[in-house]
Amino acid sequence: MRGIRIPALATAILAALMLPVTLLSPASAAPSVSVRPLPLPQGGSPTVPYVAGHSGDFDVVDGATVVPVPTEEFDTVALLGRAGTGYLVRIVSGDRVPDRVVRVEPGKAPKQLAEAEYFETSKLSTNGRYLLLTAYPSTVVVRVLDAGTGHQVARHSFRLATEPLPLDVRGTKVVIGGWAPARTMTWDWSTGAVSTIANRSAYAASYATNRLASYTMRPNDAGACSVVSTLTSPGSTTWRTCTEKVASFSPDGARVATEPIDHQDVAYFVKRRSVNGTLLTTYTNPNGVWAAAWETKTRILLRSYANDGASWLVRCEAAACERAARGNVG
């Protein structure tokens, strides 16, 4: 397996020696693994794009391709994803001016596609074709931009109370989470039609894998739960949890990476589960750990912090983990 250079037998023996006995009992067979980065062995570089660098000096790295990001001192960068032959990044300004969404591409000058206030969302569709934005004037406007040119493809206004969250696109249809009341909607920009398809508020979706995650109420409310379902049957329940939320779906939709739901107020673990909720692995770090990206349908990158505050990408295949690079994804 590319990247993971710990032999499987040695990994199993090492895990057995290091894990508490309770974690190996039949009742709790899924392992729990510390992913504090510096004690882990160094492995190969990430096989997906990521952001490397430090304040004011960032690059998008994708294998042998390194593309500078136009930043200033105190700026930070979030990678939205690969869009054709380029990459979309959100540059968070250190002096509170609006953030910038910029397209960077090898051999071409950076192109600013949009500006966004810190509370306004920006997301790249899973097919890499569209940039989905929210803007808050007197109403909330959902905008769809061409991820290559920045040309506006469509826009729709919602009430402020709706707080629309655009998540993904298929054809001319956008799936959107909303509130007041909690609901999941689709907006078809070819007809202008907005339809409610479920009475929970969607926060993660993938048309490519037919997956949807939604909240029963606002996630910082103590009684809030998260429900996984399909986009073709959005009102159904594949798995429900009131302590975790979906951070991402695997590329084939068979697994999910979860983090603590907001009302848990912790950031010490990521759990790898099957899409029906079966626990596969728990990854822990008292300094903080978050799901970053999937390299394959089973191999995940985690954003894990060292004692000195440095952000590392840690690669894990089940319980075998290693450092991949300093940096972040998303």
Results as ranks from 00 to 15, higher is better:
92 V>K: 07
68 P>T: 06
80 L>Y: 01
132 L>S: 09
159 R>M: 12
122 S>M: 06
123 K>E: 10
153 V>G: 04
71 T>I: 11
144 V>N: 04
114 A>F: 02
74 F>C: 04
142 V>N: 11
83 A>C: 12
146 D>S: 08
139 T>K: 15
92 V>M: 10
97 V>F: 05
150 G>F: 01
127 N>E: 12
121 T>S: 13
66 V>G: 00
106 P>E: 14
159 R>L: 15
128 G>A: 08
71 T>H: 04
82 R>W: 00
135 A>S: 15
72 E>G: 12
165 L>A: 09
134 T>W: 03
163 E>V: 13
112 Q>A: 13
101 V>I: 15
96 R>Y: 13
166 P>E: 13
81 G>C: 04
92 V>F: 01
92 V>P: 00
72 E>P: 00
90 R>A: 11
117 E>T: 05
161 A>C: 09
124 L>W: 00
170 R>G: 11
79 L>W: 07
121 T>L: 12
168 D>P: 08
76 T>K: 05
139 T>H: 11
145 L>Q: 14
153 V>D: 04
78 A>Y: 03
76 T>W: 01
87 Y>T: 04
143 R>I: 02
98 P>T: 07
124 L>Y: 01
69 V>G: 08
153 V>Y: 05
142 V>G: 09
108 K>Q: 14
118 Y>G: 03
133 L>S: 11
104 V>K: 02
145 L>F: 11
130 Y>C: 08
166 P>G: 12
121 T>N: 03
94 G>C: 07
